[in-house]
């Protein structure tokens, strides 16, 4: 990539930093350049976030219908997989899988609910009622 071809498209990095890239000058020697962003990768990141938002919404609808416990919604909201939630909550993966069932979740002790609420950074009440915040 030639230095003058380095894209300078607006991106989410604006106001944070710039991307350092390796580029060649007119005689083919490598040097570095800073890039604001590249529309091609901004679109890839947008798409990833679009997918995440879809999964959050889907999990929310399922939880509100009582098909699955609110845990899935909060996992999606906080971008977690089973292993990450297990790490932060201290529950085993098999326990979390059980807690995904509304029938099991609805009978969890206050103490266990608090553990989840703390990880997701919400109140126990919000946890039970599928109310997420944008932190």
């Amino acid at each position: 990539m030639k230095k003058e071809e380095l894209p300078q498209d607006p991106s989410v990095l604006d106001k944070f930093t710039k991307d350092l890239c390796y580029v060649v000058d007119e005689s083919g020697n490598y040097t570095t350049g800073l890039s604001r962003g590249w529309e091609v990768k901004a679109a890839a990141l947008d798409l990833a976030w679009g997918d995440i938002k879809e999964r959050i919404e889907e999990a929310k609808q399922k939880a509100l219908k009582g098909e699955i416990s609110p845990l899935l919604f909060f996992m999606e909201l906080r971008l977690m997989d089973m292993g990450t939630l297990a790490g932060y909550s201290g529950f085993w993966k098999w326990q979390i899988k059980r807690h995904m069932k509304p029938s099991v979740f609805n009978h969890l002790s206050e103490k266990k609910l608090e553990r989840y609420a703390k990880v997701f950074d919400v109140s126990v009440d919000d946890l039970k009622n599928v109310r997420g915040n944008e932190n």
Binding site: M1, D19, L20, C21, Y22, V23, T32, W38, V40, K41, A44, L45, A48
Partner: peptide, 11 residues
């Protein structure tokens, strides 16, 4: 594309 360009690859 994200693995290729996004994660500090230098392009």
């Amino acid at each position: 594309v994200r693995m290729q360009e996004e994660i500090g690859t230098g392009g």
